[in-house]
C-alpha cells in the first residue's frame, strides 16, 4: 500500500474550499474553508479560539464540546462546512464584558477545575443542561455530563459547581 491517504497542502490540488458563513460567539464570520476541516480545527486554527480542546479526536471524551444551536456536540466529529448558517458558542463567548458566566464562577469557587483540559467542554455541556433544566438533580447532572471525561476530579466538585450555578447546590466552602 503506498500513499493515498489524501495529501495535504504539500500536494498540487485544486482549490476545493467552500464558503462558510457561521455565527461564532455572537459574531458572524464568513471564511473559505476546506471541506475536510472539522469544526474543532476551524475554531482553533482558523479563528484562534483554542478553548475547545482536542483530546481523544474520535468522539469519546468531550474535551472538544461546543454548543451548536444550543446543543452540545463533539466538534471533532463535525465538519466545519456542515455548520453553515448555524450558531456556535465556544467557551470564549461565555463571559460577557469580562464578567464570568455563573457556571464559570461556580467552577472556580467549588474547586471544579484541576488540570483544566476538560473544563471548557464541561462548562458548555453544563450550560446546555441548565438552559433546559435550571434546577437539575445530582443524577440529571451526571447524565448530562457523562459524555465528558474528567481525569482529575472524580466529578465530585464539577457536579457541585453545576448544581450551585443552577441554584440547587450548596454554597462554595470558602
Amino acid at each position: 500500500m503506498g500513499g493515498g491517504v489524501g495529501g495535504g497542502v504539500g500536494q498540487d490540488v485544486a482549490d476545493t474550499r467552500k464558503r462558510l458563513t457561521v455565527t461564532v460567539n455572537g459574531r458572524q464570520c464568513s471564511l473559505m474553508v476546506e471541506p475536510n476541516r472539522t469544526l474543532l480545527e476551524f475554531l482553533r486554527e482558523d479563528l484562534g479560539l483554542t478553548g475547545a480542546r482536542e483530546a481523544c479526536d474520535t468522539g469519546g471524551c468531550g474535551a472538544c464540546t461546543v454548543l451548536v444551536d444550543g446543543r452540545p456536540v463533539y466538534s471533532c466529529l463535525v465538519l466545519a462546512v456542515d455548520c453553515q448558517g448555524k450558531d456556535v458558542l465556544t467557551i470564549e463567548g461565555l463571559a460577557v464584558d469580562g464578567r464570568l458566566h455563573p457556571l464559570q464562577q461556580a467552577f472556580i469557587d467549588h474547586g471544579a477545575v484541576q488540570c483544566g483540559f476538560c473544563t471548557p467542554g464541561m462548562i458548555l455541556t453544563a450550560k446546555a443542561l441548565l438552559d433546559e433544566n435550571p434546577a437539575p438533580t445530582d443524577e440529571e447532572v451526571r447524565e448530562a455530563i457523562a459524555g465528558n471525561i474528567c481525569r482529575c476530579t472524580g466529578y465530585v466538585k464539577i457536579i457541585e459547581a453545576i448544581r450551585a450555578a443552577g441554584g440547587t447546590g450548596k454554597p462554595a466552602c470558602t
Binding site: 476545493t16 467552500k18 471541506p35 475536510n36 462546512v81
Partner: peptide, 9 residues
C-alpha cells in the same frame, strides 16, 4: 488525526 481530502457536496 486529520481528515483526508474529499470532494464534498
Amino acid at each position: 488525526m486529520r481528515l483526508p481530502r474529499f470532494e464534498y457536496s
